[in-house]
Amino acid sequence: MRQTRSKNIGIIIYILLLLTPVYWLLNMSFKTNREILGGLTFWPKNFTLDNYVVIFTDPSWYNGYLNSMAYVSINVVITLLVALPAAYAFSRYKFAGDKHLFFWLLSNRMAPPAVFLLPFFQLYSSIGLFDTYIAVALAHCLFNVPLAVWILEGFMKGVPREYDEMAYIDGYSFPKFFIKVFLPMIRSGIGVTAFFAFMFSWVELLLARTLTSVDAQPIGAIMTRTIGASGIDWGLLAAAGVLTIIPGVLVIWFVRNHVAKGFALGRV
């Protein structure tokens, strides 16, 4: 009993420490710039929503969020569409070069984005995709698709092959079996994979910033604009930061029961 209590205290302290920087960000987002620079306050004295109002009314701000959402969604859809059949192949069949292919895929998850920066820039410029959602979405597939294949393969391995065979005996065609029988069985795996694709695309900025200029600029890049002539507008920056945290928290709530398994890439 005493042990559980000391454990609880430990985890509570850890979570409090973890949330302190976030609390500080939230605190600042409700302050005016004058109050921030005027001195340290643990709670906003002049509580204001002005910073949020600016973001929600200025198109150059809220478009940043919409842009980020757009390429992230496209990326998640593409990732799942291509990764599902591939993961099925890896989990069920042996084929020429399968191991090498798998490692090669993974090696792309390991590639430093900085390495691809310049070639990507040139590639997408030359095919006229520069500054579009699809460019960023495709670029993010570089690390999301291998990860998705890996996670999904882990989940699919957990489904006995007898199900596949039974479906064939019952006269299902492959596509029908795959969509009607197989996919519902790995629902949670798909949810977790979508979550991870969302997460990594949402948090990445280096590629997203390099491949866009105006029309598809992500919120992260827009945030650097708060450095104006009069110095940094800290309150606005903090508010913009707070708004980037919310989507992730909402999404994780839906997959909370499977997320632990997902973090282990389906391998526990």
Partner: peptide, 12 residues
């Protein structure tokens, strides 16, 4: 709660 830092864009 523990996952929150992982969901924050890296520039943020």
């Amino acid at each position: 709660l523990i996952a929150i830092p992982l969901l924050i864009p890296w520039n943020v």
